[in-house]
Amino acid sequence: MAQCYDIEYLRELARQSRIDVIKMLEAAKSGHPGGSLSEIEILVALYGHVMKHDNDNINMKDRDRFVLSKGHGIPGLYAVMANLDYWPREDLLSLRTVNSRFQGHPDRVRLPGLEASTGSLGQGLSIAIGYALASKLDNDAYRVYCVIGDGESQEGQIWEAALSAPKFKLDNLVCILDYNKGQIDGFVKDVMPLEPIADKWKAFGWHVIKVDGHDIDELIRAFEEAASIKGKPTFILADTVKGKGVSFMEGLIDWHGVAPNKEEAEQALKELGA
């Protein structure tokens, strides 16, 4: 059932989205580059190929739903959706300024097109489960995708949600962990270790798939596998690099929540081929 896609187009979408993230954060002088760059291929695979959605009809009844539970990664989603013509790319530069639709964390009321307001960590997966239950009530009208963070997985509500989705046999739900291994105070393994992550989600009753979170082909295959699984939700453990795509940001905790200055942004954009 695999559908054709143009991998070069998707890679270009990822590259352009990274460029937009850097430009946005430089303009805003604040924000979260690390987690916005680590999630890009996940978002590109979903919005660029896997999900059923329509930028000309954002309220399309049976559109697939996407919830960015790790709300601080929102610049990545703003950028990907801008590149898919949800909103003008130049508007992105109003990020984090007064009266902007592009809030520091997702606001579904100010920015129609987003499916959830998040930012207080741990809440988005529950909202995604609500969407998935509603879809089931409406005869499996659509599929639901939710990206969570690894630091976020220290929240208790994530595990309440993890317990509940298998109970309701939500095979229309996919939770993707952007496993970039860093959080504000340090490495996840030092702040509050999560391993063995895959074993935990398996034990909770999820179908678990491990992928390279920067390999779009692998991600798409995982989403196709998830769609074929019946009777249980799927958890995709996406191995990612914090700050991916910018050499001096990759893997460094210091870039969790600090924006690049003009010189840093110039270098980052050069590396990204802007």
């Binding site: 529950s126 909202i127 509603a134």
Partner: peptide, 11 residues
Amino acid sequence: GVGSGLALAGK
């Protein structure tokens, strides 16, 4: 949270 998702989906 699940209630929120259901509500946003029109329930």
